[in-house]
């Protein structure tokens, strides 16, 4: 709790800072660097897309940045806390309090209703939902068109509805950062558009920091910053681009990459 208060006093500090972070898999000659000395900072309030071809290391980037996986070397500072100094318990609590997640699939706990899923981060932290937060959650549920399905179990919701519940959960506790891993990967194009618009709105209107991993140029075009990863390195750092520009950029990397 104290960390989040001190953070609010320090608005200039980035939410996520990575210094020379590497993540290596395997041993000896079979050793592969999924992340190769990556340094990057994500400031408060932006919507960043992390792009790259399959196997480029973008998912590893998210896992390491969110404290789901250990870096082999280097330092990740998430919401003001250096992850290497935290044990499993400390990182779990940090995720619970400062990080929201939206995954490609299997976002919701099957035995909990939509509302219970949304409230899970509060329950886990043992926090009471204040009147103000309750109002925010009601507003989210209403905006996301979930009001009528709120007591349903995930298996009774469509893929798009499940994804929207996951987004509501991530936004509900107003975490320092939301990590979204291919959030539209399983959705039809209409649901995709809805979800992406929602993320952009959350970032623009509520100042929510969002980092979204995607390989889809259309999805990335909703972001206001685009990081391109290839072979475990950040090879591009751009402002907002059109889907066409992003597509060209990616094709350029794929063709240009040494065989």
């Amino acid at each position: 709790m104290t960390s989040s208060i001190s953070l609010q006093h320090n608005q200039t500090q980035p939410v996520l800072a990575m210094h020379q972070v590497s993540k290596l898999y395997g041993e000896g000659s079979g050793r592969v660097a999924a992340l190769d000395e990556v340094s990057v900072a994500i400031p408060r309030g932006g919507f960043t897309a992390i792009m790259g071809p399959s196997g480029s290391g973008k998912s590893t980037f998210m896992n390491v940045a969110a404290g789901l996986d250990d870096a082999t070397s280097g330092e990740v500072v998430l919401a003001g806390q250096p992850l290497s100094k935290l044990g499993d318990e400390g990182r779990t609590v940090l995720r619970r309090e400062q990080v929201g997640f939206v995954f490609q699939a299997f976002n919701l706990v099957p035995t909990l209703s939509a509302l219970e899923n949304i409230l899970l981060p509060f329950d886990l932290a043992g926090r009471k939902v204040t009147a103000e937060q309750r109002q925010w959650i009601d507003q989210l549920v209403h905006t996301l068109g979930l009001a009528e399905r709120i007591d349903h179990r995930p298996s009774e919701l469509s893929g798009g509805q499940q994804q929207r519940v996951a987004i509501a959960r991530a936004l509900a506790s107003q975490p320092a950062i939301i990590f979204a891993d291919e959030p539209t990967g399983n959705l039809d194009s209409r649901s995709s558009r809805e979800v992406l618009t929602l993320l952009r709105t959350a970032s623009r209107e509520y100042g929510q920091t969002i980092a979204m991993v995607s390989h889809d140029p259309v999805a990335a075009s909703y972001a206001d910053r685009i990081l391109v990863i290839a072979d475990g390195r950040i090879v591009g750092d751009h402002g907002p681009l059109t889907p066409q520009q992003i597509s060209d950029l990616l094709i350029g990397f794929e063709i240009g990459a040494p065989a």
């Binding site: 789901l68 779990t92 609590v93 619970r96 309090e97 997640f101 995954f103 299997f106 706990v109 886990l124």
Partner: peptide
């Protein structure tokens, strides 16, 4: 397996 992984990501500690 997946459900437990999700719970861990969302902030369930090992002891929980």
């Amino acid at each position: 397996h997946r459900e437990i992984g999700l719970l861990r990501a969302l902030g369930f500690t090992r002891s929980q």
